[in-house]
Amino acid sequence: MGQLIIQKPGLFTSIQDAGRYGYRRYGVPLSGMMDTYHGRLANMLVNNPTDSAVLEITQSGPTIQVIGATVAAISGADLSACLDDQPISLNSAFLIKSGQKLRFGAPRYGVRTYLAVRGGFRADVIMNSRSMFAPITSKNMLQAGDIIEFDDTRSTEAHHASVSSPESFFTTAELLATPGPEFDMLTTSMRNQLLKAVWTISSHNRMGYQLNAELSANHLSITTAPVTPGTVQLTPSGSLLVLARDAQVTGGYPRVLQLCEECQNQLAQKTSNQQVKITLQN
């Protein structure tokens, strides 16, 4: 069995797949890749099913010793990935030989990048998924000394798969949404403010993105109701909470908008202090 030995974990590196479907009735979040577009792309480049387990690497990447040979691909944010000090091109399959070391450097653009190896990473499947989410899995993220296994008996035949991902994916500030169930609760003036405001990302993690603007406080609340990744909640202070993959399955703030899936992926590549606008999709 091939092994990735995590020497330095980086800021937040975790194993993710398509998510933990079927357990939200028990209060278990969906989890899975934050940017499904690039996670699936990394899998496709190494001929994996698109829902195979990948490493999700956030901003400051890990240092990884690889034991065993494999075909790999990195897709998503440009975090200056190197294999034994040789820069790796994003969105192209490449060969890793046993004993080589993967390292990441300064982030150039984007926030999250995905490392896939042929055959996917092995990790215990708990509730239909390998995605890390404590306490469903024992931890949320990888730590120094962790070892992740993969099948190193797969073909490492030269592979020239390569795609380009559009730059606009990372630079666009316009996010498309549809009206949420409580959009009608808002006054016309609140709706206008919501859709005209320039929102600044104040914090983010795998549970959600908080967006701030000069929006007035409100006293709107709802009976606790189901939410899903991409649900945009209006908080009493007037900030927005855009729910992400590890968010709770129910919530009590008005669900004013729902971000389309492609825009959830685009938002997952943004970080604090960046600005976005939210526009209604036709």
Partner: peptide
């Protein structure tokens, strides 16, 4: 239908 999850006055049907 793949999954459902309820709350006080509603059900989400995936």
């Amino acid at each position: 239908v793949l999954e459902t999850y309820p709350a006080y006055t509603s059900i989400a049907v995936h």
